[in-house]
């Protein structure tokens, strides 16, 4: 078991160290045991539909993937490293142009080899998700074989 402060630092560094997360302008807003909230401010460069100004689904996928990976990293039994094995995304509705998109990810189960994650993306209307995803992530336990 790691100290929570240590885990929080790991997850925060995890996001800051990702060049593409920086390029997307991602912000780690909240962090808990196996839980993260990551936000992506609206930006013209991420538009997928020029007629409406709606952000591209791909950017929402990148946001949800990042929030999910960070949730794995901050799980109490968390690994030293992780990678996405599989991600299944449902797109429910277009995100409202001009609004920040927020992903809430939860690593709800972890084994020695695999971490399972649920993630929901919302804009300012949090009662109607923009997208939801479930993912499986690798668990790299590090050299001693035990997740730290």
């Amino acid at each position: 078991m790691r100290a929570m402060a240590d885990i929080t630092d790991t997850a925060r560094m995890f996001i800051q160290a990702l060049p593409h997360a920086r390029a997307l302008g991602l912000v780690l807003e909240e962090i808990g045991q196996g839980r993260t909230v990551v936000s992506m401010p609206w930006d013209e460069k991420l538009i997928g539909d020029p007629a409406t100004g709606v952000i591209h689904g791909g950017a929402v996928s990148a946001l949800m993937d990042t929030a999910s990976g960070a949730a794995v990293m901050c799980h109490p039994a968390g690994p030293v490293s992780t990678a996405t094995l599989d991600l299944r995304i449902d797109y429910m509705r277009p995100a409202t142009p001009g609004q920040t998109i927020r992903a809430r990810a939860e690593c709800h189960h972890i084994t020695r080899s695999v971490a399972f994650v649920r993630v929901t993306a919302t804009d300012e209307d949090e009662s109607r998700p923009v997208a939801m995803a479930t993912g499986a992530f690798t668990v790299d336990a590090g050299r001693n074989g035990d997740p730290r």
């Binding site: 990702l18 060049p19 593409h20 997360a21 997307l24 591209h56 689904g57 791909g58 950017a59 996928s61 990148a62 946001l63 949800m64 993937d65 990042t66 990976g69 990678a83 996405t84 991600l87 995304i89």
Partner: peptide
């Protein structure tokens, strides 16, 4: 490559 970039590339 970021997994999200890969996802986006496949989707587009």
């Amino acid at each position: 490559l970021h997994g999200g970039v890969t996802a986006a590339f496949l989707e587009v």
